[in-house]
Amino acid sequence: MTRVGVVVFPGSNCEYDAQAALRELGADVDLVWHTATDLSAYDHLVLPGGFAHGDYLRPGAIARFSPVMSAIADFAAGGGPVLGICNGFQVLTEAGLLPGALQKNRGLTFISEPTTLVVASTRSVLTRRARVGQELVVPINHFSGAYTCDDDTLQRLLEGDQVVLRYRENPNGSRDDIAGVSNEGGNVVGLMPHPERAMSTLVGSADGRVLLEGFLGLEISAARG
């Protein structure tokens, strides 16, 4: 069975949602405290949403120094699939495992609403089971979600097919409508929207499934809902 480690920092708050979603897809999911230094038991790692270390200074700025981060960097360097959702995305950018940075939203508003994402690349572990151009309804829930990078970085992202997901209608001022990016290898992915909250039409959308199934390397399930 696929083993997933969901890394929990002081202040994380989406770890149980992530665990429940991945368990529903058949994975064996452990919550891993941020002081862990051995992640060899896991095939996949998830950094969940929340407010790691209170988001003091900047989101992810202090979490980057948590003991678990060097093990995550080693795991990523070895090609292991790593997914950062929302605050997890912010942590991965602060740690330098993903390019760019997340800034306060345009208009300085906290935004919690469903968004329509457009799949921009299927080269990443998160989107490998989706189609380019496929639209997915996935909620966002953030204050610092405006993706930012300099011109050179954007150029490299576009050339390397590293922009994974875009917003159909930009909610937060993200550069080039970017909702998610990957590293060069495509095995480390971060996104601001919450696929783990889009697992059932009962709560508005099951479109997160195709993303998390791709992340786990599963075939797309026929059953939805």
Partner: peptide, 13 residues
């Protein structure tokens, strides 16, 4: 913020 980086706080002020 580096030149060219959007500054939503500055803009709001």
């Amino acid at each position: 913020l580096r030149p060219g980086i959007a500054d939503p706080e500055g803009a709001t002020i």
